[in-house]
Each structure stands twice: as C-alpha cells, then as structure tokens.
Write a protein that binds this DNA or RNA. Structure first.
Lengths: 222, 222
DNA sequence: TTCTGTGAAAACCTTCACAGCT
DNA sequence: AGCTGTGAAGGTTTTCACAGAA
C-alpha cells in the first residue's frame, strides 16, 4: 500500500518508547484491526477469534496476537476477543477516542480534492483550517473550511494547539513548509508531497505518494 | 504511505519471479529513486553518487546500491551514477516508459476527488474511463473522462486490454467489484476502499487507506 | 476442546566492511 | 583517491509450535 503507502522505519519515535520498543508496522496494523472491528460491530458480531480477525485484516493469526500482546492480554482463551471491548482498547491505544484537530497545508489540485473528499471527519479527525500561499485562486465547491494565507500558519498552530497536518504542497516548497510546521510545534505529518522530508526525531511522517504507488504496481504487470 | 503508506508482502508476485526473488520493498524504493532522479535531471545534474541519491530518497547508501544490484551494475566506480542513464533503466524496469491505461472504479466522494486531481496523467498513467453504479448522480466539475455504468466494466477491460485499476468504491461493494475485475483479467489494483481485498496470487494490490494513515499518526502524538 | 499468549526458530531485510574498478 | 558492487554480519519482524487458561 502505500500501499505502504512508502514509509519511515524508526520504531516508536514520538512517544517515550513506552513498553520497550514496538515496531511501527505493528502500530500501523493496529489501525487496520480497529477498522475491521468497527465493521464487525456494525454487523452485530460480539466475539471474534484471532483467526477471523486476522483474515479480515489480511495477516496471519500469530501476527495479530503478537501485535496485541505489546499492549496487554485482551482475549479469552477458548473464546476469542470481545469486539466492543477490543475496539475500545484500540481507541485508547491509538488515541482516537478524542476528536483530533488537523490542518491542511497546500490547497492546490490534490489539497482541494482531499478537502472536498471529506472522509477524514468520519473517523475522528476534523480539518479545522486550510492554508495556501494563494488564497484568491478560484476553487469551486470547497466545503466551509476556513482558508487562510500561509503566513498565518505558525500563529494558528500555536493558538489552536494543532498537532497534526496534512501536507499537499508542491515538492519544491515542501521542506520549507515543514520546517515552519516543526518550528511551530507540530508533531505529525501526513505527507502527500512527492518528496522525502527531513524532520527531527520527535516528528512523525507518513508518506503517501500516489504516483509512486502506481509506478510500483506497474512493475508487476507483464 | 503514505504510507504507508499499508501493503502486501509476497516478494515478486505477478512477474515470473525474475532474478531470484526481489523484495517488494526494494521495488517500491525503485519508484522513489526514479522520482529523485527526475528532479536531479530537471536541475541539470549529470552524475550522482549513491550517497547523494540515497539521502534524497531517505535511505542509507548501501540500501540503494543493494536495490539496484538486483537488476544489474549501472554505476561507475569512483564516479557514481549517470542520472539520465539510471533514470532510463528504472523506466525500463518499472515499465513506465510506455503510457499505461488505467480505469477508475467508484466515482463517489473520493473517486471524484481523484479524477479532478489529475496528477496521475503527468507520470505516464492515463485514466481512460471511470465506472460507477450510479452514472446520473451529479458530479460538478468532472474532467472529460468517459463515465460508464459498472455493468460495462468487464467488457471494457477486455476490449481495451486494461491492466490497472484504481478502486474507490464503498467497503461493502469492494470485494464483489474486485472479483469482477480479476475475472476480466485485471492485474493490478490501487485500492482506496477501506477493506483488505482477497485476490489470487497473480494480482497485485496496493492499499492506501487515508483514515488508517491518520489513525496511525495519532498514536505518536503525546 | 478451543483458542489465546509467548518463547524459540525461521525468514527477511538492512547495514557493514572491504574488495575491486576507474 | 574515490565510489561502486557484494558477501557476510547484524538486527528486526514473522511464523511456528506448544503451553496454559476458559
């Protein structure tokens, strides 16, 4: 995905290496399990075995159990996992129980598309503002999110205690913007700009490069 | 990604296990190197060392050299790599030298956003048609891509020899659609639907789940 | 009996260190 | 001298296999 999505490797950066060192891949899968559990809950399923949940998430059962084991013992031997309970635990672990404010930086083609998409809001994230160098450029059909000049970025981050940003600026501008974001205290970046960002240890970056994902798939076609 | 962003693990599925077994991660990085080389070329750089290219791509130099070594020897000892030549080689390896037709399946919020984004076309991919169960639903500002009912999917894939699809249908519909795609001979899927797809060995899937990427980042915020 | 939790083994990927061209 | 190519070492993640609780 992207695939795996492409991706960083430090184990548990950001958090204070809680509980030894948990592979970042495990954390990533936790989000996937969480999603599967939500669907099971919607379907009224009360209990799920590691085998069933693993299949839904596309992993092998021992992997799922190992991943969960980093955080505790949540299952009942001979039975499986309580769907609601496990979903709640993952909510706590991932920090998705509280609504998380997010800003979008870069409202060009892709940024506009992401704004109009709106799918983030359903999952506990809210884009509370968008920033761009050119505020006046026409962008038909934008949802009612405040659009601000990028010069107000640092101030806004401070004032609203923003911790996460979605970055969709041109590659050439990305590093400079990131420097500003980091200086303002931002902690996590979902990067759609086609560049590898240079960030300090305590800032976490996930890269999603749509062109790279397609190129990568292209290799596997005969 | 992102990313990411998430991702499959079989080594060299799809292709006939050419050259022993090449890690999928290596292939993925090849796309990243390719992108960095393009930028270097634009800047008029003629030669690049493994150290410089690795830094641009966010990896360590031996990793870059190992990745390239799966496909041959392209550098000059004492000098480095010729930017244009290496870019050409990666074009060949990745199969991005020829224009690749792609279809979009699912023109809801996200699908529409992706269509309007249009960033794929620059990179050697062209969305030649879009499919949705409901063709009549209003979608303002769509680019001039043929929008067809999903019932014509199989026929179209056959007639146009389509090998790649971008999937952005609701989770509940995804597996059924994928079954149809696979039956029609499709080989690679970039999946934006928030589900793990069940596909035969010879079909490659990259998953990009935007909500999962955000959730994952959420963990690292204190 | 069933299914989780987990140490140990296997597989995998990354990094090192240096040999070998230019 | 400089930098690539690569076997071997090192580290991490995945998988196995079984002990142990319900």
């Amino acid at each position: 995905m992207i695939l795996h999505p492409v991706k960083e490797e430090p184990s548990a950066a950001g958090r204070g290496d809680r509980e030894e060192s948990i592979p970042r891949k495990s954390i990533y899968r936790l989000s996937i399990y969480h999603r599967c559990l939500q669907r099971l809950r919607e379907n009224g399923v009360e209990t799920v075995s590691s085998e069933a949940l693993a299949r839904a998430a596309g992993v092998k059962p021992p992997q799922l159990r190992k991943d969960l084991a980093y955080f505790g013992q949540f299952g009942t031997r001979g039975l499986g996992y309580n769907v609601i309970q496990l979903a709640g635990i993952l909510n706590d672990v991932l920090g998705t129980n509280r609504l998380q404010p997010v800003i979008l930086v870069g409202v060009g083609n892709l940024g506009t598309a992401l704004l109009r998409y709106g799918g983030f809001n359903k999952e506990g994230f809210e884009i509370i503002a968008a920033f761009d160098a050119d505020v006046d450029r026409p962008r038909p059909g934008l949802p009612p999110v405040p659009l601000k000049p990028i010069t107000e970025l640092a101030r806004f981050i401070h004032d609203h205690q923003v911790k996460m940003a979605i970055l969709a600026v041109p590659a050439a501008a990305a590093q400079q913007v990131v420097n500003d974001l980091v200086a303002a205290g931002l902690q996590a970046i979902l990067n759609f700009s086609p560049t590898i960002l240079d960030t300090p240890e305590h800032v976490v970056v996930s890269n999603v490069d749509l062109a790279v994902e397609l190129e990568n798939l292209s290799y596997f076609i005969r």
